[in-house]
Amino acid sequence: MQTTFLTYFNFYFSLFLFFSCQKSEKTNNLPIGSSHKVPVVKIQQIQSKPFLLQLQTNGITKAQQQTQLFFKQTGEINRINFPNTSVVSAGRIIAELDNRKEKLLVLQAQDQFKKASFILNKLLIEYGGKDLDTLSIPSRVLENIKIQSAYYEARTALRHAQVQYENTFLKAPYTGVITNLKTKEHNQASLSEPFCTLINNSIMAIEAFILESELSYVQIGQSVKIKPLAYKDKNYIGKVYEINPQVNQQGLVSIKIRIQNPNKYLFDGMNAHIVIEKSLSNQLVIPKSAIVERSGRKVVFTYEKGLAKWHYVSISHENETHMAISEGLNAGNWIILDGNLNLGHDAKVEINKDK
Rank of each mutant, 00 (worst) to 15 (best):
Q2H: 13
T4K: 15
F5I: 06
F5K: 07
S14Y: 12
F16Q: 08
Q22D: 12
E25Y: 10
K49V: 10
N58H: 08
G59C: 02
Q64V: 05
N78M: 06
A90Y: 14
G91E: 11
K103E: 14
L104Q: 08
V106H: 04
L107A: 13
A116N: 07
F118R: 10
L120A: 11
L120E: 00
L123C: 05
G128H: 10
G129Q: 03
S139Y: 10
I145F: 01
Y152F: 04
V163G: 12
N167F: 15
T179Y: 13
N180D: 14
K182G: 09
A189P: 08
A189Q: 02
S192E: 10
L198G: 00
N200A: 15
N201M: 06
N201H: 09
S202F: 05
I203E: 03
A205L: 11
E207M: 15
F209I: 15
L211M: 08
V218N: 00
G221M: 13
S223V: 13
K227L: 07
A230R: 08
G238P: 00
K239H: 15
Y241C: 08
E242L: 14
E242A: 14
N244V: 14
Q249V: 12
V253T: 03
V253F: 09
I257C: 06
Y265E: 12
G269Q: 05
N271Q: 14
A272L: 03
E277V: 02
N282W: 11
L284V: 12
A290D: 04
I291W: 01
S295E: 15
K305Y: 05
K309C: 07
H317G: 05
H322L: 06
L329N: 01
N333C: 05
W334N: 02
L337C: 08
D338C: 12
D338R: 07
L343V: 03
L343K: 00
V349C: 03
E350C: 04
